[in-house]
Design a protein around this nucleic acid. Structure first.
Lengths: 147, 147
DNA sequence: CTCCGTGCAAAAGGTTTGCACTGGT
DNA sequence: ACCAGTGCAAACCTTTTGCACGGAG
């Protein structure tokens, strides 16, 4: 888990950004953002709901979905869709990559330092402006390799 | 679209692999595989269904889902999950990468030659055996940049 | 002839939407 | 006080599952 201090800093930055952009600072947004910032895994909307709901009686699943969408739109989080099933959400911190098991779909973070920096390719032909990248490494996790 | 010739070759290889592995060569499997091999986009299961169904009256959506899963399991296709919504299917050819628009979610192929070869990272700490990788470049497509 | 593969219908997720109310600004 | 944001319930879309039938090997 990130240090409490780092989380507090990010929460403060989040609050300031919200004010600057005129986004209402509701308890729900604060709580969802904080929950996301505290975790090092990639929770689904439902997992965020389960974690936050006890602290916020009456919180609605719908709201969690809507807040997460807002966070993604505003660049505070990223949506990580892997295999079939629920979307997972990742607080945006530094660039990192993913290791995905072809067998069971397990997803693990691989931090940037394990991977050489990549020069952004020339994509002029496609009309895209490239901002960043994420690498998905495919393979088999230990338990899938054993069976 | 890949050349008719290339498609025919891949269909033949597919049929031989099926025989060798004892997979029944049903019309449905042939048709779904052929449709996938002919396209250069990444169709959803539903798009495959819509494309194949007119030629194969009585084809069921369920079957398309099941055939696609078989193709993925057997290594004839890959599942590409991007943004929310339906999974997309990619006929496996060479390694290639993806360009994803943060604005509209559009996904475009970027072939391997545009990107320098990457040395597979050391993942011993994670217990994974890494086989390959795909890079997702994030950015904005032309039309999203203009608005 | 034997099963694997298919079709249908229904269920099972996951996510979105319409509408009325509430709480931030 | 206004309007963005929330809660609830219902709709929606994608995918999976149970079961009976049919066609490939």
């Amino acid at each position: 888990m990130p240090s409490q201090r780092a989380v507090a800093e990010r929460l403060a930055a989040f609050e300031e950004d919200c004010r600057r952009r005129g986004l209402a600072l509701t308890i729900q947004r604060r709580a969802v953002f904080e929950e996301l910032a505290e975790r090092k895994d990639h929770p689904t909307a439902d997992q965020v709901y389960d974690a936050v709901q006890p602290r916020l009686r009456g919180l609605s699943r719908t709201t969690v979905y809507r807040v997460l969408e807002t966070l993604v739109d505003q660049g505070f989080a990223r949506r990580v869709q892997h295999a079939t099933g629920a979307a997972r959400f990742d607080p945006v911190t530094e660039r990192h990559h993913h290791l995905v098991c072809d067998g069971c779909g397990r997803l693990v973070d691989l931090d940037d330092s394990a991977v050489p920096e990549l020069r952004l390719p020339d994509a002029r032909g496609t009309g895209f402006r490239i901002d960043d990248y994420t690498i998905s490494f495919r393979g088999l996790c230990k338990s899938c390799r054993q069976s």
